[in-house]
Design a binder for these strands. Structure first.
Lengths: 261, 261
DNA sequence: AGGCGCTGTCATATTAATAAGACAAAGTTG
DNA sequence: CAACTTTGTCTTATTAATATGACAGCGCCT
């Protein structure tokens, strides 16, 4: 994302120091339970005042990454076993019903719009064609974890109602309407929470999000669904098991098929 | 990442507005080529002054997301075909040699350290055991795109030298030493660029990064490698093809096996 | 041509972020 | 216990970010 002017230092000193300290914890260069340098030392080490050091440590303390003890010092907390909900590589929440968790969907937007360039091309639609655009938020145990923007060609998008979309998985509605989803193309990336998304996911503006784009095609090769999903990485992560296969110099990783639950 | 105190608005107004506008472009709510509201209008719409509106638009212009025409207005640029390098779900850069691209590796750090809590547990190591820690940056055509932190149990890590690691893939070195890698567990998430990482990847502090953690085990179930990789999403993304399989109500997505190039 | 709206640029006032220092309370060490 | 260190809290000066307003140049429309 660096522009032609090269990297800049847009963020505040507090945030920069927070990221530096957080990185030293998460990459394991600071063992768990280790003692931080004192606040004045951290200030002189990084060339900032003690006020900003405290603000950075406040942030780390809120996340549970450090533990502060008045008079003693600041220590690296033992990692609190992160990423509660894990999905397999096909992006299906594994064993979600078996664990007694409750899921919920909120429909934030439902409208028919003209397809934008990128989405129109991905779905192989002709120029100016309209499609059904929806924005949903998924919650698990009352906590939001995913923000979903879907686009469906209007001819298909007219086969279900707003209420149905709020209660039923989209792919289920499509297959009910006779659409035969066959293959999908999926891309995983990372992005930053915009204010609107941050509010919907109850997280901070500018916090990192997993970005997943999936385009689904039917048996005739027509694009039937374009999904743009944003996940909170602290509540959701993508997991996959790999096995080493092939012989000699041609060895490579191949995905291990998950047995459907 | 929201703390127990709930979401805060840590970031600057300029950055918030930048994220809002960027989100409206990337999710397709603003079609390509569309005209933005004028700078004064954007200011009153979002409750900020025109100075910060200009700074937000400057950022978008640097990234090529908008095009500004003095006297006319600001327009959404046609998407510039993003994500040049694409890897398959097993994280192997597909057809990297065939395309005539040159790859390069820079070794930033090479040391034997005591394993931190999280990494020691992942590799099934006993408490206090030492491991070999390395930090590398991979470049393609001279541009950095990945930041790799690897941990290997010291017994295995002593079978190769610093120079070898700087020129040879780690897994190759391991298998040369008799290690028989069999299976791996991989988790994909998202994070934020700390100053040190941002500098190494030539990107902005606080910009989003794909986070991939891979733990490799050998035939005897021993952990042999812990990889923590960070990727620039504008230069690298994870792709996977899925096929719809199963019958009737039990349909689900399964990964399509990539044919090794 | 002329009116209008938009971006580019500058100057200045106001507000938020940071720096610098002092002090009390709590913990550690001898 | 006594000296020392560290975090918690406060006050004040300095610096950076933002708000407000004005004006020139460019482009579109009638």
């Amino acid at each position: 994302m660096a522009g032609p002017l090269g990297p800049n230092t847009d963020t505040s000193k507090t945030h920069k120091l927070y990221l530096t300290l957080r990185h030293s914890i998460v990459t394991g260069s600071l063992p768990g339970g280790a003692k931080f340098p004192s606040e004045p030392d951290l200030g002189s080490l990084h060339g900032v005042s003690r006020v900003t050091v405290r603000r950075a440590l406040d942030h780390l303390e809120q996340e549970g990454l450090v533990r502060r003890q008045p008079g003693a010092g600041t220590f690296v907390a033992n990692r609190p076993e992160t990423t509660p909900f894990v999905a397999d590589l096909a992006n299906a929440l594994a064993s979600i019903g078996e664990m007694g968790r409750t899921t919920e969907v909120r429909l934030l937007s439902f409208a028919f719009v003209s397809a934008s360039n990128a989405i129109g091309q991905a779905l192989l639609m002709s120029e100016g064609e309209t499609c059904q655009r929806s924005v949903r938020v998924r919650l698990i145990d009352g906590e939001p974890f995913s923000y979903l923007v879907t686009h469906v060609p209007s001819s298909i998008g007219e086969t279900y109602s707003e209420e149905e979309l709020a209660s039923t998985p989209l792919l289920f509605l499509l297959e009910r309407s006779g659409v035969q989803a066959q293959r999908a193309h999926q891309t995983v990336s990372a992005t930053i929470a915009a204010p609107e998304v941050a509010h919907a996911l109850n997280t901070d503006i500018g916090s990192p999000l997993i970005s997943l784009t999936r385009v689904v095609f039917d048996r005739d090769g027509r694009g039937v669904e374009h999904l743009h999903a944003l996940y909170r990485p602290d509540r959701y992560s993508l997991k996959m098991d790999l096995v080493r296969s092939g012989k000699a110099e041609k060895r490579h990783w191949t995905p291990k098929r998950q047995s459907p639950a």
